[in-house]
């Protein structure tokens, strides 16, 4: 940042925009909540939220929708970070939704709890009466997200209606809702994957080790390396091998793929991300491969 020229660099501008959004929601909503998955985007979100309200603690709780298929390193990291920030953690468990008979577990080699999370999430929103949920979605991730507003309005069923979005002008956000409705808020909408990494490096933000190159037991499915774990059923052809990999996104172990990589430091990751020719969701997300509009369809059902 150069004080004399009154110019902010791109990371400062993105940060200021996100902080503005966090504060606006905290000021206008009764019961906001920050969605935290343990992934790099939600880690950056938590960091930005801490900045927005410093020296006060976060004026809202942090919620993790736990599919039960997490990377153990990521759960450990979550608990540590929440404790450091003295934040309140709410865990919404997909396993509990299954046990309560609200959803039915998929079976077979491609079973995933990805779709089930939506029910768990919507139930948690209702239980805690959350009226605004912060999410770490970015517009560069996916084409349905490229059209979603910063304040994404959801009806009583948590559904997104892409044809009926409120125009979003200047930095004036319309946060008016009726009882039972809520909004999803995306403060880092305008960040790209590279911005996230540059920011993590600049701010010295700690991230789980799975993002750095490491040796892992993996098997190949649909051109992606999936981790061999108790949560996935392999077919006979899917042989386990050891590869040097890292994760570009971190989600449910059953559908998040690793990429082969030697990038063991932030500097090397930034170099790798700058040169990559494949989008992060394209490289690592089985859940987006269902159809051209897989993300849009899930969002209409109430997914993030």
């Amino acid at each position: 940042m150069s004080i004399t020229t009154y110019e902010l660099n791109h990371l400062d501008q993105l940060e200021a925009e996100a902080i503005h959004i966090f504060r606006e929601v905290a000021a206008e909503f009764e019961r906001p909540c920050l969605m935290f998955s343990g992934g790099k985007d939600s880690i950056v979100m938590l960091h930005l939220a801490a900045k927005a309200f410093w020296p006060a603690r976060l004026p809202f709780p942090v919620m993790h929708v736990d599919t039960g298929h997490n990377f153990p390193e990521v759960l450990e990291f979550r608990d540590k970070r929440v404790e450091e920030l003295e934040a309140r953690l709410v865990v919404a468990s997909v396993q509990k939704s299954i046990d309560d008979g609200k959803v039915v577990e998929e079976t077979g080699p491609r079973a995933s709890r990805n779709r089930l999370q939506t029910t768990t999430l919507l139930d948690a929103i209702e239980e805690h009466r959350f009226d605004a949920l912060f999410g770490g979605a970015r517009r560069d991730e996916e084409k349905a997200r490229a059209k979603e507003r910063v304040y994404s309005f959801r009806d009583d069923f948590g559904q997104w209606d892409p044809k009926n979005q409120r125009p979003e002008l200047w930095n004036l956000y319309n946060g008016r809702i009726r009882i039972g409705e809520h909004i999803r808020v995306f403060p880092i909408s305008n960040w790209t994957e590279l911005d996230i990494w540059q920011y993590i490096e600049r701010e010295n933000v700690e991230i789980p080790q799975v993002y750095f190159a490491h040796d892992r037991q993996v098997f190949s499915r649909d051109g992606m390396w999936l981790a061999d774990s108790e949560f996935v059923t392999r077919t006979e052809d899917e042989k386990v091998v050891t590869r040097r990999v890292r994760y570009r996104t971190v989600g449910d172990m059953s559908c998040t793929g690793a990429v082969e990589s030697e990038a063991a430091t932030l500097e090397q990751i930034i170099e790798e991300v700058s040169a990559t020719r494949i989008t992060e969701r394209g490289a690592t997300r089985a859940d987006d491969r269902v159809s051209e509009a897989a993300m849009e369809d899930r969002k209409k059902e109430g997914y993030f």
């Binding site: 996916e142 084409k143 349905a144 490229a146 059209k147 509009a293 849009e296």
Partner: peptide, 9 residues
């Protein structure tokens, strides 16, 4: 590239 929604396509 930009018209990603179902109805748009």
């Amino acid at each position: 590239l930009t018209d990603g929604l179902r109805a748009e396509r």
